[in-house]
Design a protein around this nucleic acid. Structure first.
Length: 442
RNA sequence: GUGGGUAUGGCGCAGUUGGUUAGCGCGUCAGGUUGUGGCCCUGAAGGCCGUCGGUUCGAAUCCGACUAUCCACCCCA
């Protein structure tokens, strides 16, 4: 236990027994995004700090106290990305992608970094699946990205999750609303809890969401955002709901939903679960019509969402969702003794060239020990190589599931083993071994 | 940043009101005759009981600090 050091606080190692599940999960996510017309974009882990100052908002908690910011050796201030949207929009502008057919739709799977105190569903290095649709102001676009998130939860068979939507209006109507809100809460200043008094200056809409009984009682009679929406925002929000209903996506309007990032406008939404602890928001997003211009481009409407991979994983665990088993080695070749190790390695190498996962002994262990090892590794077949096999150019291949033994010609091993294997795995339907990797059904 | 819980071999746990070689299950490794898995049996390796300091004749067991971790607040994915 006298380790030199451990993984930094708030980071997590993903070991093989877990990583194959994540790989499966991530592939399902990217495939789903593809169905909705999103294509993958990859942007750097770190960006110039000003991108996030402007993009995320200087007054937000994320920027004020959670960013991993440092100066590089060239005296530039850089920051590990705390979220995915800003970098994506930056790349969109930098490469003139607004000249392509709009809307442009991107998806990504990235690590994000936020210096916070870790707890259930919250890490300092975490992973987000996100999508961004740039160049459409249509309510249908809002609905489409919500539909994608819904599609994903549906795909995994998750029902312990609910969709809540809201509209926080455009800058014009939000200004009126915030003024009304502020004056309302100021008249109750003495009764508010300490954090809410603090919130009043920074982000009065947060008070609506306060868990303190006193504050929430006061919040009950506070002005409602939806009453302050301008006509355009109102229609927009109404249309979004119509599209959701058309797609039979259940939702509730929750007027207390506020996003913590400055760039949101109009539609905001969250997919929330009670099954994974206090950090129940698995997916959050909305429209951000001002961001492109904020980052130096021509005004361009956009919307998107971020989904927490770790939270999604927790949710799948809580829902008892089964993952398909990991791929197993096709064959273990056991040399009867050290002198057959070379022939074993030669055959192993040939079969690997054919696309099979094949294991063999490298440490000169007894055949019995090797068999135990092959069993632990869940090898589909095993074979032993010794005098008799080398002399006769044939060997017995044992199916570890049922003990059946088949004799194969070692000179034609690639073809004969392919047949044996696909018969065992596909019940006679030949298939390329590699196609099973990562496909996991459906 | 604030609050609470927990810290014993790789993992999961015991360790009785402080007492002398710290146990158990799983796992790992090697055997149970000669070239074969999953059950069973035997044996072995592996822990300065989170760190530092204190109380005591004596502490994994009591006290303090620190660190880590978990949970919650804040905030967010």
């Amino acid at each position: 236990m006298a380790l030199l050091t451990k993984a930094p606080r708030g980071t997590a190692d993903v070991l093989p027994d877990e990583s194959y599940k994540l790989r499966y999960l991530e592939q399902r996510l990217m495939n789903s995004a593809r169905l909705f017309g999103f294509r993958e974009i990859r942007t750097p882990v770190f960006e110039h700090t000003e991108l996030f100052l402007r993009g995320v908002g200087e007054t937000t908690d994320v920027v004020q106290k959670e960013m991993y910011t440092f100066e590089d050796n060239g005296k530039r201030s850089v920051t590990l990305r705390p979220e995915g949207t800003a970098g994506c929009v930056r790349a969109f502008l930098e490469h003139g992608l607004y000249n392509e057919a709009l809307p442009q739709k991107y998806c990504y799977l990235t690590s994000c970094y936020r210096y916070e105190k870790p707890q259930a569903g919250r890490l300092r290095e975490f992973h987000q699946f996100g999508v961004e649709a740039l160049g459409s102001d249509a309510p249908a676009e809002d609905a489409e990205i919500i539909a994608l998130a819904h599609h994903i939860f549906d795909l995994f068979g998750l029902d312990n999750i609910r969709l809540e939507i809201n509209s926080i209006g455009c800058p014009a109507c939000r200004k009126n609303f915030q003024a009304a809100l502020r004056s309302y809460f100021e008249s109750h200043l003495g009764d508010l809890c300490e954090t809410c008094r603090d919130r009043l200056a920074r982000n009065p809409m947060r008070i609506l969401d306060c868990k303190s009984p006193v504050c929430s009682a006061i919040a009950k009679d506070a002005p409602k955002v939806l009453d302050y929406l301008c006509e355009e925002c109102q229609t927009h929000f109404g249309e979004v709901q119509k599209y959701l209903k058309a797609m039979h996506i259940p939702f509730t309007v929750n007027p207390t939903i506020v996003r913590g990032l400055d760039y949101y406008t109009k539609t905001v939404f969250e997919f929330v679960s009670d099954a994974i602890g206090a950090q129940g928001t698995v997916c959050g997003g909305g429209r951000y019509d001002g961001l492109v211009e904020e980052l130096g481009g021509q005004p361009l409407p956009a919307c998107g969402f971020g989904m927490g991979i770790e939270r999604l994983r927790l949710l799948l665990g809580a829902g008892g969702i089964e993952f398909p088993p990991d791929d197993r080695p096709a064959l273990y070749i056991a040399p009867a003794s050290r002198e057959f190790s070379f022939e074993a390695m030669r055959l192993t190498d040939r079969l690997r060239g054919e696309g099979f996962e094949v294991l063999t002994d490298v440490s000169g262990r007894s055949v019995k020990a090797q068999m135990k090892f092959a069993d632990k590794k869940r090898a589909q077949f095993t074979t032993v190589l010794g005098d008799a096999e080398v002399a006769s150019h044939t060997a017995k291949f044992k199916n570890m599931d049922n003990g059946e033994v088949t004799e194969l010609d070692l000179d034609r091993l690639n073809e004969e083993f392919s047949g044996l294997w696909s018969n065992a795995v596909f019940g006679g339907f030949p298939d390329k071994p590699n196609l099973t990797l990562l496909n996991g059904g459906k």
